[in-house]
Simulated scan of single mutants.
Amino acid sequence: MSWSKQDYPESLKNLPSDVRNKAIEIGNALLDEGYEEGRAIAIATDRAHKSEEGTQTDKAEYHVTVHDDGWQLKKAEGERAIMVEETKEKLLERAKRYATDHSGTLVVYKEDGSVENHLYQK
């Protein structure tokens, strides 16, 4: 089943519209090639983000990852945590503001280390 701008997987809903539209386009091509839907979503999302990165080169990238004391915000390639919170939810509240104030993007990870979401701050 093909996806459209009105009917697409739930996991694409938090993407910026331009990235989501690119992911839908790529995902449909992958589905046509016989990829399983879950795999198509993952590949399409990754490729759409990489496509968008070319237009976002001036933005710093910050990562939300697991930390010994809960969750941390680090700048990509950074050595130390910018901030740490006990819960992911508390950290995301602060991290979104921080990324916005610093014209950055957030890459949010799951506990297992896989990417959960990319958030483009304005």
Rank of each mutant, 00 (worst) to 15 (best):
S2I: 11
K5D: 13
S11T: 11
K13L: 10
K13I: 12
D18M: 04
R20T: 05
R20K: 10
N21I: 02
K22R: 14
A23S: 03
I24R: 02
I26E: 03
I26V: 11
A29L: 08
A29E: 15
L30S: 09
L31F: 05
L31S: 04
E33T: 07
G34I: 03
E36F: 05
E37T: 11
R39D: 10
A40W: 02
A40S: 05
I41C: 06
I41P: 10
I41M: 07
I43C: 04
R47Y: 05
S51L: 02
S51E: 14
G54E: 08
G54Y: 01
Q56N: 08
T57E: 15
K59S: 03
Y62A: 00
V64D: 00
V64F: 08
T65M: 14
V66N: 00
H67N: 14
D68V: 09
D69P: 00
G70D: 07
K74T: 10
A76C: 04
E77I: 00
E77K: 08
G78F: 04
G78H: 14
E79Q: 08
E85C: 07
K90V: 12
L92D: 12
E93T: 14
K96C: 09
R97H: 11
R97V: 10
Y98W: 06
Y98F: 10
T100I: 15
T100W: 13
D101Q: 07
H102S: 10
H102I: 00
H102M: 06
S103G: 10
S103D: 11
S103M: 14
G104P: 06
G104H: 05
G104V: 03
G104L: 01
T105N: 12
V108F: 01
K110W: 07
E111W: 01
E111Y: 08
E111R: 11
G113E: 04
G113F: 02
V115Y: 05
H118A: 00
Y120V: 15
Y120T: 15
Q121Y: 00
K122V: 12
K122F: 05
